[in-house]
Every structure is written in structure tokens, then in C-alpha cells.
Design a protein around this nucleic acid. Structure first.
Lengths: 390, 390
DNA sequence: CTGAAAGCGCTAACAT
DNA sequence: ATGTTAGCGCTTTCAG
């Protein structure tokens, strides 16, 4: 059809036409059924595998085809696609043509021409376990997505789960697929961090200030201050032997929470009463609490570095026959669903995760727009939520 | 100036150059070389990139620049980039040039030329709450990513959280940014489902068979059979009054689990003993269990449609003074972390989430490669895990 | 208001 | 082995 249409020279002979996968159809013998032999009778029951969609993907219509079908030039087609002055007749004809040939714009091509992608990458550099369970990062994603969506940008979230992924994502980031990136919990030495700086991709960090690059905007909360605040209230309510289950000391948030704890306690701080564990995780909460109980059976106040950790601690306390909050006061951090589900509900520090995501998105959007962020880092409010565990 | 450089014809006079904001400064100043302008002087020892990353993003080097710097043609550069015969000298020169000019390939352009993106979209069409907390979808993602990674494909996960998102993601999917897609828990009427079918994008569904399109591959588990199995064991252990908290009956998985429950019970099935709730959620577990307890105080066996639901039910039972498993046997579904964290740990049905992701990825990869999947749908094994709650 | 033409940065077929 | 030359599909001047 389009090949012979109009004055245009006969376009392409698409490689696909030539290289079309030659299936040796004759083979009636189906390859051995994969894994679990699904009793064919079960669900499926699709007797007509004929209508398959894939097949040699039909070569899609282009502006060219539309133009030809409408009897106008590509320029005009483009004008109706994106705003522009077009006569009503032409517009009608073109719209008809679009429908007729089933035209769907190729954004990729458009991006190349425009030199921008209208997309922003979202990377969470967390260990799997957290990626899977931490509701915070989900909320941050949703917040970021909402903001980007408003600005008509596509958020594409990229998972990094191996060195190979790091490479590939690096290529993706620097390959023109995104105009910017939001990076959650990067460490300074993360290869991606360096890359971002190198290629000068607009980006903002969340959850960990980029020591390395003091030049990249950061959105987060004041971990030190909040830890201080919640520990303070533990003191005010009369707890005498207050300990902490510190977690993830290798990352800023973890270290900061411990710092805040120390600051609040001042002279009363006793290193013996700090158990430290590697991750913000329920299981480590159990472990940490056991350690604390061992070292100081008289302990009557505990600040767990996160709600998940607190939940683990709570379980341990219960097993040890300690009542919460009567015998020991327990507080967490994050205000995640762990806090609400615990029995009793946990007093904790509220992390405005959604807001954080939104703010981060706005920050990259600004950068993309060429605006220097007024302040390199912004700390959002993270109020203490007083519930029943202390 | 650059117009007389080298043998290449004076490439484009980029519109921008003309339209460039005319600085009123001294006439001596050469026209500000915007974008492309292959002025040789450029790269050499970046003179104070002002440290900041953003600003007018420095115009990136292209194959052209590399070719020029190495004194070869673009074709040759391309050959060293992607495999091809290149003399050692040329290769060395080019590699040096690449490093010198700081060349980073523009994958977007390459994709356009090659007509493929080496990327696969991942969409989870779940209500937020689940997206945030359901560890299953995280595991599926990780599994899919691993498989795609092996095949050197980038997984890009797209979140749909509003109608606007649906539109945008639709454009993204049909805009040439991905070669295929993995779609988790779509319903037949989901706009995306239709779209996929329309544009004939290689795709496979997870978690819900596409009624609408019996033509699109599906990966999942046998919900009916597994529900039947676990309910059966509840019966075998002597429970007399067995009820179910059915959830999400509007989706296949939910409906199937109920079906399996009925099948297992046969004559003994009593509709009164089924409480149904809208979502696989802890809070609904609480609600559902209360309803059941109201209707039948003598209840001594409960099949909750998911572990989260079971956890809620467990809490309610505890509050009602029922001991598990002594007074009532309780089983869940999913084998998520809820099951392990519960006290006692839940007997449940194991969902091979990671495997599911992997399998789905392999399925789209096959389709992309032009291979028709041998079987349209594959059901993976989902064994019962017997623990302590029943 | 519309058409023509030059690109975006890279790939691939075709000559050397 | 290397250079040349068309494109990929869309955007954006610049004439008319």
C-alpha cells in the first residue's frame, strides 16, 4: 500500500521482511511441556491458538502514511499532532487518515528529534529484602509518580539487583531514555552515584545525602532531631534504663538516629545499652532485643531504629514476659504499617514518605527545567506520633 | 570556522545556530556553538565546568566527534562499538578518541535505528495498598528482572495510579520504548489490556488470565487446586465447622480460591460460613473473622484467602479468646512474610513468586524473539506448607 | 496556513 | 578493513 502511494520514493524494505523467522512448521511434536505440567484441561482451555497477536509484528503506520492517506505533507500532520495552525479541512482529513491507517506515534523517534524524553528514572538502591517489604519506598514512589504525572512525565523505575544491572541501568541512564533521576538511598560510593555526576544528569537523592557530590540536591528528614525528640519523650515519661536497637549504622539514617539518641541521653548515655544490627528488619529486632535483655534485664525503655525492628523487639519482650508499655516503653521510627499493626500500637516518628517523593520529583523537574534549586537540600517535617507503646 | 573543517561536508547549520540569542557582546566572539557544532577545540581539558551538574547540559559527544577525533569514518567507529572487523590501529585510535571526547552512546538513537529497545515494561495493576505491601509482587519483579537481565534487557517498571497514568503509560507502551511487557493482575476490562492486544505488543500476564484475550500468554498458579488441597487438610485434621474468609472475589485468584474451598467441602459446604471481603488485606481479615465468629461461634477451622487476611483473623481470634490451633485451625495463602511472622506460624500455600516472574519474563522474551509460546498458559507448582496454625 | 528539507545520533547495506 | 550512503520516525525551521 504505502509503498506505491504518492510521489515519495519507495521506502525501506524493512529488515524484518527479509529476516522473518522461519519456523520449521512441520514439527508437530511440541517441545516438552515446561515445568509443572499443567493439566491441560484446567483453566486454559484455549482451543484456538490461532488468533495470536505477536507473529511478525506488523510494521506500524508512520506520519508518512498518514500524510499520504490524507493527501498532505508530513509537516501538516505534525501540526495537528502537536499544536499548530491547520485548516479545518486538512485537520479533518488528517484525523480521518490517522484513524484509518491506525497511526500511533512513535515517541522514541520524537524524543530523539526533540532531545528530551519526558521520563524520569527512579532507582532504589536497597537490599532486596527492603525493596520487597519497606512500605516507605513504595510510598515515595507513589508520591514521586504523582508529581511527575502532573508534569506529564513518565516515571520509570529501574531495579538494581546485580552488577550486571548496575551496568545496564548505567547505560540506560546515560543513553537518553530519561531526562533526570530520583535516587533513593544511594551511598556515596555507589557506582551509579558517580555516573550521575559524570554525565551531569539532573538528579536528586532521597534518604541519604550524597557526601561525595555536595552538588546534587537531596530530600530527606532530620533523623538526628527526630531521634532526639522521641528519645526525649521516653525520658520524660520516667524511663530509667533506656536502650537502643540501632540498625544500619553504615548508612546515614541509621547513624543519625543513633546520634540523636546519644544527644538526648547526654550523660545518661550508656554504650552498653546499644545493640546494633545490620538492617532495618523484624528479625534483627528480635535479635537486638535479646541482646539488650541479656545485658540489662532492668531495661525499661527502648528506642528501635525502625518500626519493623520495634515489632521484632515487641515480640521478644512479650516472650520474655515483659509488658509494653507497663514494664518497658518501646518506640520505633517510620510510622509504617508495622506501627499500627503492633499490639499495642507503636509510638514512633512519622516519615512523610509520599511528600518526600513528591518533593524529590519536583526537584528534578526543576533541574530539568534549568532551574537551580534554591536550596540544595530540603528536610521535611517528621513529627513524633505518640501512641500506646510508650 | 568549523565549516571548513575536514572532508565532511559542512554538516547542518543547525537551526539553533541561526536562531541563537544574539549576544550583543564584542563582535570578535564567535557565534556561541550550540548543540552539535563539532568545533575541535571543545572537549580538550574541560575548563572549569562550574562544578554544577545541571545548567545548560553540556552537549554530548557523538559518533561523529569520535570519528573526527580519530580520523576515521563513523562506520568504523560503529564497528568498534558493536562487533565488526577493525584494524588494531584504527581500534586503538578510536578507543583513545572515545575516552578523549568522553563519548557515551545514545541508546535512544540506536534503538530508533535498530527498531528495538531491549527493554520490557513491567506493570502491576494493583490498588496502591497492595502495591506497597504485597511482597509477592516485589518478588515477581525481582524474578522477572533477573531473567531479563540475563538476556540483556532492561526492565522498566511503570506505575499506574490514576487515569492520567493509564493514558501516559499507554503512550509509553505503544511508543516504541519497550519490546514487550509483563502485566501483573490485570483485569480483562483494564484499558491497558485492550491496548496491548490492539498494538500487538508481545506480552504475558501474571496473576490473572486474560479472559478477554485468550490469545495472550499467562503465567500463574492453580488457585483452585491449591485451595482445595489446603482445605482438605483442614478437614483431615478433624475440623468440623470450617469457614472461609474469601477476598477479592472480583478477581480470578479470589474467585478460584473460593471455588477450591467449595470443591473440597462438597456436601459439607455451608454458604453461611463464607465471609467475603473486597481485598487481600489485614484489616479485612479482622473484619471477616468477626463476621464468621458472629455467625457461627462454634467455628473450628478457617481458610483465609491470603496470609495477610489470615493474620488479621488470627488477631481477632486471639481477642475472642480462641486458641490457634487448639480451638480453631487457621490456614492462609501465599506463604508471604505474614505467615512466618504470625504467632503461631501459618500453614499456607506457597506461591513461587520469583519463579513466576522469571517464567513470565522468559515468555515475553520468547515472543519478542518471534517464538510462539508452546503453551499459552503455564501453571507453576504451589505446594501446601504445613506449619503450626492448623 | 502548508510544503520542503535538514536534522536528532546511530545502524547497516553496499562499495571499495 | 574502511568509507559512503541511506535511512529509523519525528520535529522544526524556512520559504511560499
Amino acid at each position: 500500500m504505502w509503498a506505491v502511494t504518492g510521489p515519495e520514493k519507495p521506502r525501506r524494505t524493512t529488515a524484518q521482511d527479509v529476516a522473518a523467522p522461519k519456523r520449521t512448521s512441520g514439527a508437530t511434536a511440541p517441545a516438552p511441556p515446561r515445568r509443572t505440567a499443567p493439566e491441560p484441561a484446567r483453566r486454559t482451555a484455549a482451543p484456538e491458538p490461532a488468533l495470536r497477536a505477536s507473529a511478525p509484528r506488523k510494521t506500524r503506520a508512520t506520519v508518512h502514511d498518514v500524510a499520504a492517506a490524507a493527501g498532505v505533507s508530513r509537516g501538516t500532520v505534525n501540526r495537528v499532532l502537536n499544536g499548530g495552525y491547520v485548516s479545518t479541512d486538512a485537520r479533518a482529513a488528517i484525523e480521518a487518515a490517522i484513524a484509518q491507517v491506525g497511526y500511533v506515534p512513535n515517541r522514541a523517534a520524537s524524543n530523539l528529534a526533540r532531545q528530551r524524553s519526558q521520563a524520569v528514572g527512579f532507582l532504589a538502591l536497597e537490599p532486596h529484602s527492603l525493596l520487597l517489604e519497606d512500605p516507605n519506598i513504595g510510598a515515595i514512589m507513589l508520591g514521586a509518580n504523582a508529581a511527575l504525572s502532573l508534569a506529564d512525565h513518565q516515571m520509570v523505575s529501574l531495579v538494581i539487583d546485580s552488577d550486571r544491572d548496575t551496568q545496564r541501568v548505567g547505560r540506560y541512564l546515560s543513553g537518553g531514555f530519561v531526562d533526570g533521576a530520583i535516587i533513593v538511598s544511594a551511598r556515596s560510593h555507589d557506582p551509579i552515584t558517580r555516573l550521575i555526576a559524570e554525565i551531569g544528569l539532573p538528579a536528586t537523592f532521597v534518604g541519604h545525602p550524597p557526601d561525595l557530590a555536595r552538588t546534587i540536591p537531596f530530600v530527606g528528614i532530620d533523623n538526628v532531631g527526630s531521634a532526639r525528640a522521641i528519645t526525649g519523650r521516653l525520658m520524660q515519661t520516667g524511663r530509667q534504663r533506656i536502650g537502643m536497637i540501632a540498625a544500619a549504622l553504615d548508612r546515614d539514617s541509621g547513624a543519625d538516629r543513633l546520634t540523636g539518641f546519644k544527644e538526648a541521653l547526654g550523660d545518661r548515655f550508656d554504650p552498653q545499652l546499644v545493640a546494633d544490627v545490620p538492617l532495618y528488619d523484624y528479625a534483627y529486632g528480635v535479635k537486638g532485643m535479646r541482646a539488650l535483655l541479656d545485658r540489662e534485664p532492668e531495661i525499661d525503655g527502648v528506642f528501635a531504629a525502625s518500626d519493623a525492628v520495634a515489632a521484632g523487639a515487641l515480640e521478644t519482650l512479650r516472650e520474655a514476659g515483659r509488658r509494653v508499655p507497663e514494664d518497658v516503653g518501646l518506640v520505633g521510627f517510620d510510622d509504617s504499617s508495622w506501627a499500627l499493626r503492633a499490639q499495642p500500637q507503636l509510638s514512633t516518628v512519622h516519615q512523610p514518605a509520599r511528600e518526600i517523593g513528591r518533593t524529590a520529583a519536583e526537584s528534578v523537574l526543576q533541574q530539568i527545567g534549568g532551574v537551580e534549586p534554591v536550596e540544595l537540600s530540603v528536610l521535611l517535617d517528621s513529627p513524633v506520633v505518640w501512641r500506646h507503646s510508650a
